[in-house]
């Protein structure tokens, strides 16, 4: 029967195509993809204000405990042993409100029900959540002899890839590494300018190309130059892309293959996730893992009211470890992920 379905699809496509054909004749839509060859406009606005840093007084605990309410009620659950329906419902609400997701929440509730709460509900729940974060989460800057280590940054649009690279460049610079930035986002307008400002700010080198250039060649170029100059690490930016487009993911796989060719070696592929994202984050993780072999997650924008509970599901289902957490706009506002602090913050403790 397959031909029948193809036939139906073809009929649909013919009809739709006709509409498209007519619409195209009528108007030529301006397009974001049109690569601009012209030189970029001069920087009209440079830095207008020093970027404040809240990292000094920051603790994940402070920031995440900002919205209480139901979380307080969970902590106030007393009693041990068998859990009542009300208690379970309260726990469910906390998890759902933190974006942990329906499926993972019911798994956690099952476990909680099975284990009981000999030392109180909060302790039991904390233990179960803590057990979700068992993966190894150290990062490496070491490559094989003669190769330049590359960290590749991937993710959807607007999650904070470029900003994360800026912050990590600062971190590596402070730890004494000579860093090269590769402006592999050749799609978004002015993405390279944004990265260049971070390069200046953190004292890193940068390789960039015109908008619309091949991202693979930019990354390749950056690796070549880093290798020639004997730099320690390449941080490679990529364009934000939705996770449900095969073409865009294929393009990303290609960039990764290019970056992994000698003298380069991809030692970390970091998926940048926005903490405000809901269940879609799980699909993002799954697709980017398949396309680019993600080795870790950077969870950004945790300084807002979002709790980022979806990473519980991601660590449980896909075993991708969260490695860094973004907690503000300042250059130092990127900290190493700590499961204990994160779980506490989820529970509003």
């Amino acid at each position: 029967m397959i031909v029948l379905y193809v036939a139906l699809a073809i009929v649909v496509v013919l009809a739709v195509g006709t509409i498209v054909w007519r619409r195209r004749r009528r108007r030529v839509a301006p397009s974001l993809v049109a690569p601009t060859r012209a030189a970029m406009p001069d920087l009209l606005v440079s830095e207008t204000a020093p970027i404040p840093s809240i990292a000094d007084e920051f603790t994940l605990h402070d920031r995440l405990a900002s919205s209480r309410g139901v979380f307080d009620r969970v902590r106030s659950i007393s009693g041990t042993g068998e859990l009542s329906a009300d208690q379970l419902e309260l726990v469910e609400e906390v998890l759902l409100r933190s974006d942990v997701g329906v499926t993972t929440t019911s798994t956690v509730l099952e476990e909680l029900r099975a284990k009981g709460a000999p030392d109180g509900v909060v302790t039991a729940l904390r233990g179960i959540l803590r057990d979700s974060f068992t993966a190894e989460r150290s990062t490496t800057t070491r490559a094989d002899a003669g190769r330049v280590p590359v960290w590749l940054f991937v993710g959807v649009n607007g999650v904070g890839k470029t900003t994360t690279i800026g912050k990590l460049a600062k971190r590596h610079h402070d730890e004494g590494r000579a860093v090269m930035l590769a402006a592999g986002d050749t799609f978004r307008a002015a993405a390279a300018d944004q990265l260049e400002q971070w390069a200046t700010r953190t004292g890193s080198d940068i390789v960039r190309a015109n908008e619309g250039a091949d991202p693979g060649s930019v990354v390749h170029d950056a690796i070549g130059r880093a290798s020639a100059r004997g730099l320690d690490l390449v941080l490679a930016d990529t364009a934000g892309r939705r996770a449900n487009s095969t073409n865009l993911l294929d393009e990303l796989s290609k960039v990764r293959r290019v970056a992994d060719k000698a003298p380069g070696q991809v030692v970390e592929t970091l998926l940048v996730l926005d903490a405000t994202t809901g269940q879609n984050a799980l699909s993002q993780a799954r697709e980017f893992l398949a396309a680019s072999g993600v080795t870790g997650i950077v969870l950004t924008k945790l300084d807002g009211t979002a709790r980022g509970g979806i990473v519980v599901a991601i660590e449980r289902d896909l075993a991708i470890p969260v490695k860094f957490v973004g907690v503000g706009e300042g250059v130092d506002d990127l900290i190493v992920f700590e499961p204990d602090a994160f779980v506490d913050s989820l529970l509003g403790a």
């Binding site: 301006p30 974001l32 601009t36 920087l43 606005v45 204000a49 307008a189 944004q194 400002q197 971070w198």
Partner: peptide
């Protein structure tokens, strides 16, 4: 948007595309 680096450039590039 004078906060994010290069936000103004981004808007200028896009604006030029739409005229």
């Amino acid at each position: 948007d004078l906060q994010r680096p290069a936000a103004v450039e981004q808007l200028r590039v896009l604006a030029r595309q739409v005229g």
